[in-house]
């Protein structure tokens, strides 16, 4: 009795070392983001709400893609098909929304979200049934979705009603609050927060950290993994819709950028590739960091292609350091 009470007391009292270990990385990412933001706002001559707006527009699809990737990685998998699923949703929405009213466009978007969650669930089911490694199945699905996207729209085109575009590029209340940012926070609050501490979320983490232990404690491993991919598909669908809302067109190759960068944002955001570690708050900030690095480079007059090279190199270095960190943790 007394030991249980002591246990509860120990849990209530915040342990600084434990807090630092658990949230240190996330806090670090936010500090990095803050530093970059402070530096960024000194570069343009008339930095203002317009710059905030364009940063939100640039980062929104990547933030959703990072969420999609993080959910899957936390469950112990990896989803290489995120980028091409984004392309598919992007071209589907841009091709058919162009002549729709705002209400129909929203309903169609909702339908696409359900469809992309189903696509994710399909990938997850294939992985569970075939017992082929996640990487191989999602690599194959990468080409299936990309092929479908190319079949639907060969060249960039399409569009969306003006009021729908406002969802991604407009602002709420004040020009300093981009609507894209609010939608991102809303999606996070609706789709992730209720799950995070409920059964499905806990199952996600347990399957990711130790599949056998999770199975032995009665977690439906197969069901949880499929659920993770479905949730990832949902976020990828949001990324695709966000891409059409922010860019105004559909592009069958637009998603390529997100395959690697979503993984990079997840790792930079504190999601360990071994699974079971991290959350979605970190990767969202990391998506802004990754975008901001490129924005700053371009503002500094660096050529677009050089910016890609530098960004790619930075991502590799980040992942390398992440790998070293895992090794250090395993050694201690």
């Amino acid at each position: 009795m007394s030991t249980a009470a002591a246990g509860v007391a120990a849990r209530v009292r915040p342990n600084p070392a434990r807090l630092a270990r658990r949230h240190g990385w996330t806090v670090g990412v936010y500090v990095l983001l803050l530093v970059l933001l402070l530096y960024w706002q000194t570069i343009p001559a008339n930095w203002g709400s317009f710059d905030v707006q364009s940063l939100a527009i640039d980062a929104l699809p990547l933030a959703f893609a990072a969420m999609a990737q993080s959910v899957v990685i936390i469950s112990g998998g990896i989803d290489l098909s995120v980028g091409s699923l984004i392309s598919l949703i992007n071209v589907l929405s841009a091709k058919y929304m162009i002549d729709m009213s705002f209400r129909n466009a929203l309903l169609f978007g909702l339908l696409l979200l359900v469809g992309s969650a189903a696509a994710g669930a399909f990938t997850g089911t294939l992985i569970v049934l075939s017992r082929v490694p996640d990487i191989v199945v999602t690599l194959a699905m990468l080409f299936v979705w990309a092929g479908l996207a190319l079949e639907i729209l060969q060249i960039p085109g399409g569009g969306a009603p003006q009021s729908y575009l406002q969802l991604g590029t407009g602002h709420w209340w004040s020009p300093w609050i981009p609507s894209g940012l609010m939608i991102l926070l809303l999606a996070f609050a609706i789709f992730w927060l209720p799950l995070r501490w409920a059964r499905p979320g806990l199952a996600l983490y347990s399957v990711g950290s130790n599949r056998n232990a999770a199975y032995l404690s009665g977690v439906g491993v197969a069901r949880t993994r499929i659920f993770a991919y479905a949730l990832g598909g949902l976020f990828a669908g949001l990324a695709g819709l966000a891409l059409s809302a922010t860019s105004g067109i559909g592009d069958p190759n637009a998603g390529q950028y997100y395959t690697l960068n979503s993984v990079a944002a997840a790792v930079l955001g504190g999601v360990a590739l071994v699974g079971g570690v991290g959350g979605l708050i970190g990767p969202i900030a990391a998506a802004f960091v990754v975008t901001l690095v490129k924005t700053i480079l371009i503002l500094k007059g660096v050529d677009q292609n050089w910016a890609q090279v530098i960004q790619g190199t930075l991502i590799i270095v980040v992942v390398m350091i992440g790998g070293l960190a895992i090794r250090q943790r395993a050694r201690t």
Partner: peptide, 15 residues
């Protein structure tokens, strides 16, 4: 596009 889809499907089926 169709070739891509087919290659993806072949990899999956054989794996």
């Amino acid at each position: 596009a169709l070739k891509q889809i087919l290659y993806g499907a072949i990899i999956l089926a054989l794996a």
